[in-house]
């Protein structure tokens, strides 16, 4: 499943960059984040609780930043496993940042999300809509924090 979003925030590109590469800052924007452990500058572990319909998924995820081209581009690879073992999520995401004006920055991200196990088969349509919902929520949080 590919999830693509492009949106703009009222903040300079450098600010956006500093924000998104910092797990401590970006972490709380993720809906349902329960815990975040920074392992090193490019690696962090998260526990995210997501409600997908009646399914409650608790994802233990490790994210590694694999590409960094400040302040324009980064790539992350995440692997998550549900605590109940209903499935695993492998996500590769690229984020591109384009400064449009001094205080406006366009952020586009493209995530290739691969869900395995029962989550993928049972909840294809639910996962899709949930992903969209979560993504919208994430963008909203991000904008709010950056534009504060």
């Amino acid at each position: 499943m590919i999830v693509e979003e492009t949106f703009t925030v009222n903040a300079p590109a450098q600010k956006v960059w500093d924000f998104i590469i910092n797990p401590e800052l970006i972490g709380p924007c993720v809906p349902g984040l329960e815990k975040i452990d920074v392992i090193d500058e490019n690696t962090y572990d998260t526990v995210v609780k997501v409600k997908v319909g009646f399914i409650k998924v608790k994802m233990n995820t490790r994210t590694v930043i694999t590409e960094k081209d400040p302040p324009h581009h980064m790539k992350t690879v995440s692997d998550g496993r549900d605590a109940l073992k209903a499935g695993e999520v492998h996500q590769e995401m690229t984020v591109d940042i384009k400064e449009q004006s001094e205080n406006t920055t366009e952020i586009s991200y493209k995530a290739d999300v691969r869900i395995t196990g029962k989550l993928a088969t049972f909840g294809e349509k639910i996962m899709r809509s949930t992903t969209k919902k979560l993504s919208d929520q994430f963008i909203k949080n991000l904008k709010q924090k950056l534009e504060e």
Partner: peptide
């Protein structure tokens, strides 16, 4: 069916 898939416990 949901229980059998262990999607809920």
């Amino acid at each position: 069916n949901i229980l059998k898939q262990d999607l809920m416990a």
